[in-house]
Amino acid sequence: MSNLNEAQYRPEDRQTIVCLYCGRAQDVSRRAMTLTCKFCSKSLKLEDITIKNYEARRHIDTCGIVVVEKKGQVNADRILCGGLVARGRIRGTIMSRGPVLVGPEAEVRGDVSAPILAVGAGAVLHGFYRIGVDPDADRAVAPD
């Protein structure tokens, strides 16, 4: 029985995620879509979010990747994510744990904090940027 359990829990079924709020890493199942951080007890979404049309939201919080497609337009106070791909237009403060990719002809207006930034030719950026700086040095985010 124990051999069967070992076979079931293969390491490739697990992924390491970093809590958006406390910045601590933990191992979770790849199939998990939400979880509660075992360190700070905050609720975390793990799924990727794709935005294909206009969306106005107060917050977009996910440990996954936020993708704003070419015809997508986001108006948000805060986007807290594991990574961001902008092909359309974004207005709001972006705090990303992973790379922020701004496609050609995309538009990002607002402050951006990310470890890596990639910008396509023709992209429009306006805001205060913190790139490659340790996010936990200044990040004290409290979910509403």
């Binding site: 951006v112 890596i116 306006h126 805001g127 940027y129 790139i131 490659g132 700086v133």
Partner: peptide, 20 residues
């Protein structure tokens, strides 16, 4: 145009675009 390689560190106000 702005080109940022992986590992670069920068802090500050950015204004990028064909009309910037």
């Amino acid at each position: 145009k702005l080109v940022v390689e992986e590992g670069a560190v920068f802090v500050g106000q950015v204004s990028v675009g064909p009309d910037a």
